[in-house]
Design a binder for these strands. Structure first.
Length: 463
RNA sequence: GCCCCCAUCGUCUAGUGGACUAGGAUACUGGCCUCUCACGCCAGAGACACGGGUUCGAAUCCCGUUGGGGGCGCCA
């Protein structure tokens, strides 16, 4: 069985890059009817915060990336790491080191200054030090030869043993380091495929060394390219973004974000739009691109707009509700709101825009746009509006019939159809931009329509 | 500095030696549709980083150069 995992460190909110890594792991496991595990890597006591755990979980849930197992916390698994560390120590594959941090740092600086690769000088390697508080445990790395691993996307990747030093696996405070904890977790959780950002490629040989020392076969490695900011540098706060939850608040649909993220670095012929089900069905590691992808806000917006206009009104209602907090939705029937959504969904790119455009459906308090009123609510139109308000009572609410009626009226009255239409639009919505006039009337119903037209007549008279 | 990864329109991508006059999406421009705004439709502009090979033939394979990204922690 395929088992993948997503191992964030709870030192920040879930961002786009992390979400995409989670998505690829999730899709791969779903595609193979396997398992997806959530694990928090919280061995950094200083920076890990419970609130980030909650935030990451909330983000994944919102995106629909549910985990089958976990969440596990590395901080609760310290004993396990120590067992494996003990084994390596006893077998002479790891040794304790008493070098003070400051000395190590100083040496590192000096090597860097000389243009050398900073490496531990192994002075404790043969000291045969016993475990003692304050001593770190280092792995004995090979001094010669090559460390090779197979990446499912990139093939063989080779590092010279000289590149890898005797790195620390248990810190002097007893906490495992990242490279050690990951390996032990992946072993004990039976992870079959490690799908992660390619910034981890250079960690992989270190991890391979641990697998070797433990005499355990490593899982498959899949290093996916990272997500870059629009300027081609690593995605960061500088780019104005953003935790996943911020996209939620900005009015994005989770499936649009998923679709966009999936297409960032992955392709399936010329197809752009995928439902979650299609992604699960069609996702394939082979189609992952090798070069880093830039995040493009415009394209995300386009995906969102696409899913806004192509999702059911029911689905949209669920997601737009939080943006409609200022209205008392209980005053309206669900059918009314759904029909309203139906008319606005092709015209809005985000849920925020949708909520804004729905304003006139949900309030009686129509405030006229100043320029619009000035331009269209003119004295000469008042009598015609009056006639419409009168006639409307007799007309069926059919778009074609209404339109024919209004066109005829325009002809007989000598007014331009366009001007009458705009006047009614301003009367009904307060704006010069809105869904189609007859759609609106149909949704609003006769009563509200007539009432609003009459108010507009009053307004004109009051000028 | 050293090591690793990568390289097709601005951006996301299709392309796995001949079907390439390099396709799609997005953004942009023009037009059509039209009660406004959208949607939709049509058209336009826009890329194989460069230099060498291999081959009858290269966007595609190899080498180099350049460029971009990542790593070099008792962070993850």
């Amino acid at each position: 069985m395929v088992i993948t995992r997503f191992p964030p460190s709870p030192t920040g909110h879930l961002h786009l890059g992390g979400a995409r890594t989670a998505l690829f792991n999730w899709l791969f496991s779903k595609h193979n009817k396997g398992k997806f595990i959530l694990r928090f890597e919280d061995t950094d006591k200083e920076r890990s915060k419970p609130e980030y755990v909650e935030s990451v979980k909330a983000s994944l849930k919102w995106l629909g990336l549910n985990w089958d197992e976990g969440p596990y916390f590395q901080s609760e698994r310290i004993k396990i790491y120590h067992q494996y560390a003990q084994k390596l120590f006893e077998e002479g594959k790891a040794y304790y080191c008493e070098c003070p941090k400051e000395v190590l740092e100083q040496k590192k600086k000096e090597m860097l200054a000389k243009g050398l690769k900073p490496k531990y000088d192994k002075i404790c390697r043969e000291k045969k030090l016993e475990p003692k508080p304050g001593r770190a445990l280092r792995i004995k790395a090979p001094e010669l030869g090559e460390i090779v691993f197979e990446d499912l996307l990139r093939g063989k990747i080779v590092f010279s043993a000289e590149e890898i030093d005797d790195f620390i696996i248990i810190r002097s405070d007893g906490m495992p380091t990242y490279n050690f904890a990951v390996v032990i977790d992946d072993i004990t959780m039976s992870i079959t495929h490690i799908i992660r950002g390619d910034d981890h490629i250079s960690n992989t040989p270190k991890q391979i060394l641990i697998y070797k020392a433990l005499e355990i076969n490593p899982p498959k490695f899949v290093h996916i390219p990272m997500v870059l900011g629009p300027d081609g540098t690593r995605l960061s706060k500088r780019h104005g973004a953003k935790s996943i939850l911020e996209y939620k608040e900005a009015g994005f649909l989770p499936n649009a974000l998923i679709n966009y993220l999936a297409r960032l670095g992955w392709g399936y012929g010329d197809q752009e739009y995928f439902t979650i089900e299609e992604l699960i069905e069609k996702f394939d590691l082979k189609n992952i691109n090798l070069s880093p992808a830039r995040f493009d806000q415009d394209k995300l917006l386009a995906f969102n707009a696409y899913w806004m206009r192509n999702s059911s009104s029911k689905y949209l209602l669920n997601h737009v509700k939080p943006f409609l907090k200022n209205y008392d939705l209980n005053k309206f029937s669900e059918d009314y709101i759904l029909s309203a959504i139906e008319t606005v969904k092709i015209r809005t790119k985000t849920l925020i825009e949708m909520a804004e455009m729905m304003n006139f459906y949900l309030t009686e308090d129509i405030i006229y746009d100043i320029d619009g009123a000035k331009k269209f609510l003119l004295p000469e139109i008042a009598p015609i509006l009056g006639k419409i308000a009168q006639d409307l009572k007799e007309l069926p609410l059919e778009e074609k019939i209404l339109e024919n009626y209004l066109r005829t009226l325009a002809e007989t009255s000598g007014m331009k159809f366009k001007n009458i239409a705009q006047a009614i639009r301003v009367a009904l919505t307060g704006k010069t931009v809105s869904p189609g006039l007859f759609e609106i009337i149909k949704v609003l119903g006769k009563e509200k329509t007539v009432e609003r037209i009459k108010k507009a007549i009053e307004y004109i008279k009051g000028l």
